[in-house]
Amino acid sequence: MAFSSYLLRKFFANPGEALRIKRAGDEVRAYAVWKLYEVLEESGLLAKLQEQPWWSFGDRDLARVVCDTLIAEGLADRAGDVIRVKRRPQRPAITTREAADFAPVFDRAFLYLPRALETGEKPPQSEVRAEMAKLLDNFATRLEMEAAVEETGLSKLGEGAVIADLYPRSGASTMVLLERTRARVIAVDPYRENLAMVERLVKLAGQEARVSYVQAPLEEAKLPEKVDAVFMAEVVHWTFNPRLALARARENVKREGFLAVAQSTYSSLGLPAAAAGLLLGAVAPPPASGELRGMIREAGFSIEKWLESLGVVIAKAAPE
């Protein structure tokens, strides 16, 4: 795995922490891949993936992500539209709190994998609400959000500033903004039950005065005021029309404001995480890095900062 831009910057500032973050990312990835392989083998699907093309499975997106994950990890080779398994992964040791906190998500999510692959049926959201919340609110995903807040300059905004937190779902992004910035936050989410969850966390933290709520689809959201920044944490592949959601973000941000993005991509850790995400509520696999750049530009933003490590992008973009 490339020791790429975010980690490289971090390494110069704090080598010990950079190495720890890299170890955490590697452990999460290794655990997810090991669990995925184990579930595929036990369910007999590993054999089927070697016989049937990925596009013949009940959930094509999921099948493609699963095949690409095994290939990217060197566990299989591509042979046309099927795969040839080369080796099995070892169960990894877990030494970081991020990996320990994230691992149960894969344990739970992949229980639904065989049925989803074969029939295309995913668990109802009401059944996996805790798993979805944990996917977005664990020490590893929080680390990604915290890094984005720091690197994009959200943490430097003053008390008078307003940040729109798009699609917080279980509220992890809102909590990170409350903990790491001084700004007010507008939580924008299409679902009332998500906003209710965010509101509970905000009350628990005693931060009611800093947060307001807007229930609206991201593609149609019209905020009560133009904001200084829009934060999109793991939103693009959870949204039916991310291009439109980004365009609305552009309309809602002040001219001198900016967009802050924390987004997994179709590579590295982003691949096995995408398999879990697809089972727990994501509507598509995450975008490839270049695709994400294109979406942000097409929405009318100019990219000012782009850091990428471990299959995660942290980006800052200003309105053109």
């Binding site: 944990k134 509220g171 966390l201 628990l204």
Partner: peptide
């Protein structure tokens, strides 16, 4: 029910 699935935001509680 399952402490491993408790979101990080609720762990301090």
């Amino acid at each position: 029910r399952d402490e491993r699935l408790v979101p990080t935001s609720l762990k301090p509680f």
